[in-house]
Nucleic acid binder design. Structure first.
Lengths: 109, 109
DNA sequence: AAAATCGCTACTTATTTAGTAGCATATCGT
DNA sequence: ACGATATGCTACTAAATAAGTAGCGATTTT
C-alpha cells in the first residue's frame, strides 16, 4: 500500500480511453433509463417523459441532445428511437437484466 | 403519439424493478469507474482515489459506502476489493469494453 | 375558430459533486 | 522515544447538475 496522491490517469494501452467515455455517458442520471425505454419502441418527447416517471423536460431535452450527439439516439417520424449503435449498446447491456434480479435476491438475504 | 403527462411507471412484470435499481446505482458518477479500478486489484483508499483521477475523498467515501451497502465492494486486509457479486457485475459489464472501441471508431467517422 | 396537444425553452430551487484543509491514528527511520 | 511521513476519513464551501413549474409558438382535433 504505497502511492502518494499526485498521480494522473496514465492508462498505458489507450484502449482504456474509450471505456472511460462510456462511463462518463452511462454514469449520468437518466441516460441508461432513456435508452432502455426507447429499446422497446420509438417514443415522442412527452411519451418518453412519461415513461421516465415524469422526469423534467429540461433534463430530458439535455439527455436527448447528448445521446443524439453520441449517435445512440435519433429522431424519426415515429418519434425518438435508438440508432443501430444504440441498439447494439442495449444488446451488450442486456445481460444486466438478469444480473439485476440475482443481485436483488442476494441483497434481501 | 398519444399519452398525456400524468403517468406513473406501472411496469407490470415487476422484473423491471430490479433493473431500475441498477440504473440508479450505475447511473451515478464514479460508481462504475471505482468498480472498474477495483476489478484489477484491491486498492487502499488513497490508491483508489489516485486511480480515479484524484476524485474528491468525500465523494469517494460516499461511493464506497453505497457500493458496500450494495454488497458489491468490501474491505479487506489488502484494501478495498470487489465482492463475488461485484465481480459478477463486472463480468456482465465486460463486453462494454469492446463495444466502447467500436463506438469510438464510428463516432470519429 | 376554440380547445387541446405537441416539442421545447426559461426560469428557480434542490440535490449532487468538486475541491481543499485538516484531524486522529498508524508506521517509519534515527 | 521522537519527529516525520502516510493513511483513512470528515468538515466545510463552491461549482455543477437535476428537479420542478410555467408557458410559448406550432400543429392537430373538435
Amino acid at each position: 500500500m504505497t502511492t502518494p496522491l499526485p498521480n494522473k490517469p496514465v492508462r498505458g494501452s489507450n484502449s482504456g480511453i474509450a471505456i472511460m467515455a462510456v462511463f462518463d455517458l452511462l454514469g449520468r442520471k437518466w441516460n441508461m433509463r432513456v435508452m432502455w425505454e426507447l429499446n422497446t419502441k420509438a417514443l415522442s418527447f412527452r411519451e418518453l417523459q412519461a415513461q421516465c416517471d415524469g422526469m423534467s423536460p429540461s433534463v430530458l431535452n439535455a439527455r436527448i441532445k447528448q445521446l443524439t450527439e453520441a449517435k445512440l439516439v435519433c429522431r424519426s417520424q415515429e418519434g425518438y428511437k435508438l440508432t443501430e449503435l444504440g441498439c447494439s449498446l442495449m444488446d451488450t447491456l442486456n445481460p444486466l437484466r438478469n444480473w439485476a434480479v440475482e443481485w436483488e435476491k442476494k441483497l434481501r438475504k
